[in-house]
Simulated assay, not measured.
Amino acid sequence: MIRLFRDVDGGPLCPDGSVVCIGAFDGLHRGHRALVCRAVERARALGLPAVALGFEPLPREFFAQGSPPPRLMPPRTKVEGLARLGVDVVGLLRFNRRFTAITAEEFVRRVLVGRLGAREVWVGPEFRFGHRRGGDLATLQREGAEHGFTAHEIEPVLVGGERVSSTRIRAALAAGDFEDAARLIGAPYAISGRVVRGRQLGRTLGFPTANLRFAGKTPALRGIYATWVHGVGDAPWPAVSSFGTRPTVDGIEPLLEAHLFDFDGDLYGRRICVEFVARLRDEEKYPDLPTLVAQMDRDAVMARRILQSTPSTQACA
């Protein structure tokens, strides 16, 4: 079972040592996977636990609290994905005002050495850390020589001649280019979570939905989509999904609502995964509910047509 910790200070978590990789890991794209898999490979070779070290909230979210940048996945999904890649320990350090004052050297001493007993540290290209981003790979290597660990940088992962990044994935999703997003991620873009109870308005309109919250984060998608839903039956289930704030009924919190075609059952509390296939349109505010229902009917017809010619290519966890 994977172990999760949030605090900079505390007792040693890996008394015999560890192999650590550090990153944001938002989206767990091909670059992240290359970094994590390298650390896991080295950890297995040394007989040590593999640690993925990140931050929550993400630094860019903390410094842009008024208009936080979109997230590709909520924290729980990130932890689950890291576990599937073979990570033994995940650190989602609390990124707050106090944390921003920690120097790079102090971070090494308190976290990498004090908590994790790092033997090797792996980072991605252009990695920076610590107060005012004052630390880099050279800092890690210098500190490692003093504290008994080595530090390494993986080669950049390129797609289309450019480095894979969460920024590129967000741009692809915003443009509705799910094929490009899948190339960058290494798998179709999908969101998983536990089905929660909503206002049940969709049921009264003839469109019952399975609803997923996005952990209070700003999602990278907004609109109406053709989707496959995993975790309902033996095979992916076709659906039309809305991701947004439901302006026609004065919604506030972003909510992913999946209407599963020809499905009759109770999904509350079930963990499902929604795989995005195609963007149908923007989210809009309609003058009344009948107008909204008429548009939902058109959306459903379009989504069914798209999914008939676009099979699912992913088995979501």
Rank of each mutant, 00 (worst) to 15 (best):
G124L: 04
S165T: 11
R298N: 04
R84G: 03
I154Y: 14
E275H: 12
I154A: 12
L289W: 10
I191S: 02
R222L: 07
G233R: 15
A278V: 02
Q295C: 03
F95C: 08
G193F: 07
A187E: 15
A181S: 13
P219M: 14
Y225I: 00
R270A: 09
G17S: 11
G114W: 09
D26A: 02
V164M: 13
E253C: 03
D299W: 00
F149M: 08
A104R: 04
F263I: 00
V19D: 04
F149Y: 14
G269T: 01
V51Q: 11
D136W: 08
L256C: 08
V87R: 01
S242E: 13
V121T: 08
P188R: 07
P15M: 12
R170N: 10
A181F: 07
P15Q: 14
R6G: 00
C316G: 10
A39T: 03
M1D: 14
R76G: 02
I252Y: 12
V90T: 08
G216C: 12
G176H: 07
A50N: 02
F261S: 06
I272D: 04
L48M: 06
S165V: 00
I22A: 07
Q295K: 14
P75Q: 11
H230S: 11
D180F: 03
F25C: 09
K285V: 00
T218D: 07
V240D: 01
G161N: 13
R170F: 12
L48R: 08
A303Q: 06
Q65I: 09
R222D: 11
Q200E: 15
G11I: 03
G81H: 06
C273R: 08
M296C: 02
L212R: 03
A52N: 06
V40G: 03
E120M: 11
R6Y: 09
R97H: 14
T209E: 08
I252K: 15
R71I: 00
D26R: 10
F149W: 12
C21E: 12
G148A: 08
T227R: 00
D288K: 08
S192V: 05
L93K: 09
V277N: 04
G148V: 05
A138N: 10
R199E: 15
E153G: 01
T77A: 15
A187L: 10
M73G: 01
R199G: 00
F263Q: 02
T291I: 01
L72I: 02
A50W: 00
G27V: 03
P247E: 14
T204F: 12
V123E: 08
L53F: 07
P15Y: 14
A226N: 06
G27K: 05
T77S: 15
V195S: 07
E257A: 02
A215R: 03
G27Q: 03
P311W: 15
R222Q: 15
R71L: 07
R94V: 02
P57G: 05
E126F: 11
F207M: 02
L4E: 11
E126P: 01
C21Y: 11
G216W: 14
S192F: 05
F63C: 03
R119V: 01
A45I: 00
L289T: 09
